[in-house]
Design a protein around this nucleic acid. Sequence first.
DNA 1: ACAAAAGTGTTCAATTTACACCCATGA
DNA 2: TCATGGGTGTAAATTGAACACTTTTGT
Lengths: 281, 281
Amino acid sequence: MNKTIGQYNADEEKSFLDNYDITKFDRPSVTTDIAVFTIRSEITENYRRDDIKQLSVLLINRAEHPYKGYWALPGGFLRMEETVEECAFRETLEETGAVPNAIMPVGIFSETDRDPRGRVISNAYVSVILDGSISACGGSDAAQARWFDVDFTKEPDSSTYLLELKNDEEKIKVELEEISSAFGFFRYRTIGESALAFDHAAILASGLSALRRCTGDMDIVFDFLPEKFTLSELQCVQETILNVSLLSANFRRKAAEYVEETDEFITGAGHRPARLYRRKK
Amino acid sequence: MNKTIGQYNADEEKSFLDNYDITKFDRPSVTTDIAVFTIRSEITENYRRDDIKQLSVLLINRAEHPYKGYWALPGGFLRMEETVEECAFRETLEETGAVPNAIMPVGIFSETDRDPRGRVISNAYVSVILDGSISACGGSDAAQARWFDVDFTKEPDSSTYLLELKNDEEKIKVELEEISSAFGFFRYRTIGESALAFDHAAILASGLSALRRCTGDMDIVFDFLPEKFTLSELQCVQETILNVSLLSANFRRKAAEYVEETDEFITGAGHRPARLYRRKK
DNA sequence: ACAAAAGTGTTCAATTTACACCCATGA
DNA sequence: TCATGGGTGTAAATTGAACACTTTTGT
């Protein structure tokens, strides 16, 4: 920085800063909350048939107040030596033991009453990890963490949305409404009381809709797969996230633009071997 | 909230909260910084010709340390009784005297060294106000605020971007590079020293690219116009933001989907009167 | 043999792009 | 009158949806 530019004076600034105590002013606490997604496989009995896939999100059963015993998104307080993004990365790693393939912000949640402990603003993130990577390493609170299959649909007649989370042990339903959109991304608000801790149902809904929105243009789909994958696997990821079914002939032509061939093939599935591809560029 | 759900117990939670002091933990300061955009007209001498339009952003010349004398985005510290979005709204109103037509988040900037006063994380917003509304009311620091025409282009050969800000009095250039993308939105980092205060050049670049990205699908264009407008004005907004020129025959067919006719016409421009339209739905 | 997925080709519809053309106005 | 923007029509090009069909495998 130059010593003087216009009114700027480095020495004067230094003495200003030496006398400045930023902690004298009110500050909120800052957290990140992360919707960690993966796509889980349910093995099918038929040796030929592909596995059924499910989009799943990781929830933690809160061991402490507030909302003790409620399911919540993983997350935690920002440390002073890390960026918000680093915080989201660290929290994902701590809770899952897995390095996320993608980690991206989906909005800030700062309603003044969203946390009974005081003024806490939350930076919401979506992260994506590979199926299986969590059980391999195990997170710090593994005993309290569970994957839930996710279903998020608009109610056919009304303007409300229904978020359903379920696994072998539990089934959670939350009703939400859309409250705003910015740059094509949506925010939601729970209707009535939420079955999840804090405003985590709304955060999760926002994360899901962001995930879906950019899945359409092949943006995040690769993060659900290992480096090499078949086009069917890629198609399956997109179908699972968007909850639609696509014609494979058309899909593979569209996907061709984003991938490049390898020389490897997958065999042993009871049908013609599939070529492995890799993300282009 | 039910009194008990699973491990949840309302009385126990209440006593936990009564003894909980959130201010004992480290917290960052939180600000919002807003890229306030408008489209300004340069009146043309030819009575028939349309005015030339320019996308402009509001910058404030900092009267205080740090970065005293530097141009900066309007913004300020979050108050404890407002959400981040309300803060962005309030700051826009205070600086411009105008109620923004749109206000949306574009990301969080939380590098630990981004503010020499201490740990400050910034919530970046884009807001849009109508041309003229600022001079009509005048903001609190009107003397220090200036509109700058914006130009943001990728350097033809390299991977760097050039942000140019200019008005009658001044011309500012900043070189940036793209550092990440999430959900189709980009983040930038200044190369070398920035001519703007803090990391505001990077914030502005992110805001601009978000603005451009959603202009393409008719998302924010209406916020640059009054309630009723001609299709040419709408086209001009899109052309100005995206810095492209479109064929009006095609544009008006595409736009038809998003607007509805009124019975009013604009006359007195030396050519066939133009029908006024209004945003649909 | 055959069920299942891998992969290619072709048709028809829908959308986008480019351009030609007429209309209405006010200095 | 005429330059200028307002507005419509249309043909060509591109993209997308639907479907028929061939290939290759493991049991």
